[in-house]
Structure formats: C-alpha cells, structure tokens
Design a protein around this nucleic acid. Structure first.
Lengths: 105, 105
DNA sequence: CCATCATTTGGCTAAACTGCCAAATGATGG
DNA sequence: CCATCATTTGGCAGTTTAGCCAAATGATGG
C-alpha cells in the first residue's frame, strides 16, 4: 500500500466513519427527503439536543450535509444525494447475510 | 423513531462500522478484484498479521466477506459485490467537499 | 511424533467515541 | 437592555476500538 493509497483510504474512511452510527444514518435518511431544523430532528431522534447537534456536526465536517441559519433556527440538508444509494447497498448486504434468505435450492 | 426503525438503523450501522477503517476499506477493495489469502493481504497492508486477521474477522462478522480454508491457508473473498459501488459514492462525496472542485461560475 | 508454516485468539495500553449536563453563544421581541 | 428560544460548545464518565506481542490452534511434510 503506497503512501498515496493510504491517503486515499484515510479520506474514504473519514466519510464512512461519519456514517457509522445509527442516529447519523437516520439523520441522513431523513435529510434525503427534505431539509430540517435541529429541533425537528431532535424530536424525531429522541435524544438530547446537544447530542443531535454533535451528530450533525460530524456529518457536516465529513462534507455530507450543509447547514443554513434562518433566524434562530439552523436547517440542515443532504449535500450529496448519492449517499442515498448507500442504503440500497446496505440492505442488500443485510439480505445476503440474513439467515432467512436462502441460496437457491 | 420507532423501535423497528432503531433496529433497522442499528443493523445498517453495524455494516457501516465494519467498513469504517482505512485498512478494511483497502481489504474490501483488494478482495473485490479476486480472492486472497491472509498472508498476501498482510504483505499488502504492511501491518502485523494478527492485526490483519482481526480486520478480516470484523468484515466477516458483518457479512461482507467469506473465508475458505485450503490447506494451511485461508482465502477471503468479497461476499457482496455491490459494496464496490460504495467507493464510487465515496469518491463523489470527496469531490464535492474538495476545495479544488468549484461550483459552476 | 516433531518442526514448521499460516492463522487466530488473548491480553494489554493508548486513543477515540457517546451521551448527558451545564454553560456559552446568537437571534428575536418586547 | 432583558427574557426567551434555538443551537453549539466544554467537559466528564463509561464504552469501544486499534495494534502489537505472545501464546494457542491447525495443517503439512518428513
């Protein structure tokens, strides 16, 4: 693995790490539909608002979402819609490894 | 977020977590080409063999790879080829967030 | 059997991550 | 200005993760 490779895989891993939490996956899923303010997201997640704010900042730092302050509220939205394809792939991995999905007989 | 949702996002996060490490992303990338034994992978990664073995077992437990013992060697291969699409998506996120890629003027 | 090669497992320390509370910051409307 | 609402930041305790070494397991070939 060359130095160039290391740099590349580190960059990729930074993005994957940002997604590697159930709450953050949920946030990405919600934001893929439409933008939302932090208080709405907090209500949906059901955790402390500071916790949700930190999760959002992780996603933001990874370049996955952007925020937009309007009045006292901050609205977040998904920056890269392609992230949604992630979920299709995740589901197919889940189906693959799920004991109920058998190979053809 | 319902209990069902929580379960679903936990399951997805388990897979994403398994990918959330540069070495494991590298392993998936290599294995997407062809199967490899642990010693080959270890040489490519350039870490202790026990470290690589543990990374592989993380990927295996997440259902991303399978292994196959032939003689004294263990060969790993990618179980779900769709994971490769991940990388395309990751790259586009990187391009998006890269300062050198500007918006249309 | 024994030595050897390939791999996994146990264990340990350092580092990173989570989630909550409390406090700070910022905007809004008297 | 002051009180209030929305959000972020600091900080702490508990949990998880990473990577190395050493030891255990498993197959192979005398």
């Amino acid at each position: 693995m060359t130095h160039f490779d290391k740099t590349r895989y580190n960059a990729r891993a930074a993005i994957v790490k940002a997604l590697a939490h159930p709450t953050r996956l949920f946030l990405v899923d919600v934001l893929s539909m439409e933008e939302r303010c932090v208080c709405d997201l907090t209500a949906m997640v059901g955790a402390d608002i500071s916790t949700v704010s930190k999760h959002l900042s992780v996603l933001k730092q990874a370049g996955l979402v952007t925020d937009d302050k309007r009045g006292a509220q901050v609205f977040y939205r998904l920056k890269c819609p392609c992230v949604t394809h992630f979920f299709d792939c995740l589901e197919s991995v889940l189906v693959e490894s799920c004991p109920t999905s058998r190979q053809a007989p």
